[in-house]
């Protein structure tokens, strides 16, 4: 055990280090791609307003990097909240089917409602899908209360079922839509626009703010229902609100970048290594770690295999699955 004072110091260190990493990665993301832009040119562009690389930077790379940051942040925060609410370090929106629910909602919207409503409502469809699945998982796990193990098991079952439904929608969409839908399902930031970034930042900031406001009571909830009740917390309502926030974050992320897995699982664990356990600090750090992860995954996907653009979801899974296995191994005696 370290003393709180020492840890307080490391908190700030963590913020500084991660912010620097985010900025560095951001610059690298702007610089690399099928054409490399030198630091000098980047400087000219950003500071001296030269317009030599207007299209590449403003239209292609900037929105993509920003969206990756936001989506990764949303997924990380969603995972942290979920892990805290159901008290299981192995939970994450993708493993218990919330992401698949969001994908299904979004696909239904694309296939059935796109002519009727504007594409701007897509996030709502994704969030709705995610919410319905989350509610379903929660209700079905209820048997004199919800145990984390049952919730995760049932979540895995529902996820398998939802994935089949998603496949069904993809198979039945028109050929032109199929490839796009499939790319989107794998989780890709391909074709991000500045408009997407603005919308996503709106969704993210509103849900994230709610989460920050609830951070203190959330810690009380982690002490156990009984203690929380005796301290005057309305446990059921709070749990519902937190799940709602988590689902909202995950659903919005799915709407803009598809089924990116494992960030919600891993980012909270990394963040917990970096800062003292206080949710108020954990939330922003987790969000930044999540953003960092997705930015790197996307950067690798679009630069290492040029001219191919490999969906970021493939990389998050290939880092995420081994990490998940490590977590299982670490928790092997439980």
């Amino acid at each position: 055990m370290q003393t709180p004072q020492v840890k307080c110091k490391t908190n700030w260190k963590a913020y500084i280090i991660i912010s620097i990493l985010v900025i560095l990665l951001f610059i690298v993301s702007l610089a690399f791609g099928s054409t490399t832009i030198s630091i000098q040119e980047l400087w000219n562009h950003l500071i001296l307003q030269s317009n030599q690389h207007d299209f590449t930077i403003n239209v292609l790379r900037l929105p993509r990097a920003l969206l990756a940051l936001l989506v990764g942040a949303a997924l990380g925060a969603a995972g942290l909240i979920l892990q805290s609410v159901i008290k299981n370090p192995l939970a994450s929106p993708d493993i218990i089917g919330i992401t698949a629910g969001g994908s299904f909602g979004a696909l239904c919207f694309i296939v059935f409602l796109l002519g009727v409503f504007s594409i701007k409502l897509l996030p709502i469809a994704a969030i709705l899908g995610a919410a319905v699945v989350a509610a379903l998982v929660y209700l079905l796990s209820w048997k004199n209360g919800v145990t984390p193990v049952r919730l995760v098991l049932i979540g895995i079952g529902i996820a398998a079922g939802m994935n089949a439904m998603v496949t069904f929608m993809v198979v039945f969409s028109e050929t032109a839509v199929t490839t796009k839908a499939y790319l989107w399902l794998t989780g890709s930031l391909y074709g991000a626009t500045i408009n997407d970034v603005l919308q996503m930042s709106l969704w993210f900031s509103s849900f994230f703010l709610m989460a920050l406001l609830l951070a203190k009571v959330m810690e009380v909830l982690e002490l156990g229902d009984e203690l929380a009740i005796s301290l005057g917390v309305r446990v059921q309502l709070l749990r519902f609100a937190l799940l709602f926030i988590s689902v909202g974050l995950a659903g919005a992320a799915v709407a803009f970048a598809g089924g990116i897995g494992f960030i919600g699982l891993i980012a909270p664990h990394i963040a917990k290594k970096l800062v003292r356990y206080s949710l108020l600090h954990l939330l922003p750090i987790t969000a930044m770690v999540g953003g960092l992860m997705l930015m790197s995954a996307d950067l690798i996907g679009r630069t290492v295999f040029i001219p191919l653009d490999i969906p970021a979801g493939v990389f998050t899974a290939s880092i995420g699955a081994p990490f998940f296995i490590y977590l299982l191994y670490k928790n092997r005696h439980t």
Binding site: I156, G187, A317, S318, A321, F324, I325, L328
Partner: peptide
């Protein structure tokens, strides 16, 4: 079951890639 879910997710996303 969790190990299965993780391995499944790993291979599925490779396939998708």
């Amino acid at each position: 079951v969790l190990a299965g879910a993780a391995i499944s997710a790993l291979f599925t996303s490779f396939t998708q890639g």
